[in-house]
Structures are given as structure tokens and as C-alpha cells.
């Protein structure tokens, strides 16, 4: 099995393919509504200092994700 890591640990410019959402129904739903699903490839656009939000891009959408939320999205590097 390939190793996966949480989105908040990726650096600016890194790419990852979403492998799992670690949270309940509402957490998944919130992400799916914004267009994230298992298999989406995301690019890290920017990271704020300290435990600030991470900005990711997929397709032509940019989304800011709070740090604690980003922790619960796992990706494998691509």
C-alpha cells in the first residue's frame, strides 16, 4: 500500500490525489459539495503561517481550507 499524508503537511506547489476524508457524514458532505471527492488531484497554492488555512486548487477552483480540516484530508503524492 502506498503511504498517504494529510494535506496540511504538504508544501506550496505540491500535488496530491485525495485518498480519504477522515470525518463523519457532514464532513464528507461539506467537501463533496465544494467538489472534492476521492481521486481529485489537488495542488497546494499557498499555506499561511502557523496553523493558518491551506489554499488548494483543483480544476479551476481555489479553496481555502482551515488547518484542522486540512489535517483530516489524506492524499498520496503525485
Amino acid at each position: 500500500m502506498e503511504s498517504t499524508l494529510p494535506v496540511n503537511t504538504l508544501a506550496e506547489g505540491d500535488k496530491g490525489e485525495i485518498t480519504s476524508f477522515e470525518g463523519g457524514f457532514f464532513f464528507r458532505k461539506k467537501l463533496e459539495e465544494m467538489g472534492f471527492h476521492i481521486g481529485t488531484t489537488i495542488t497546494i497554492v499557498a499555506r499561511q503561517w502557523m496553523s493558518g488555512p491551506v489554499i488548494v486548487r483543483f480544476e479551476n477552483t481555489e479553496v481555502a481550507i482551515g488547518f484542522n480540516m486540512a489535517k483530516r484530508i489524506r492524499v498520496k503524492r503525485v
Partner: peptide, 10 residues
Amino acid sequence: SPELFLEIPP
């Protein structure tokens, strides 16, 4: 206190 989760339009 939920987390920020926001689309950033161009």
C-alpha cells in the same frame, strides 16, 4: 467554532 472553508474566486 468551525474551520474556514471558503471558495476563493478569481
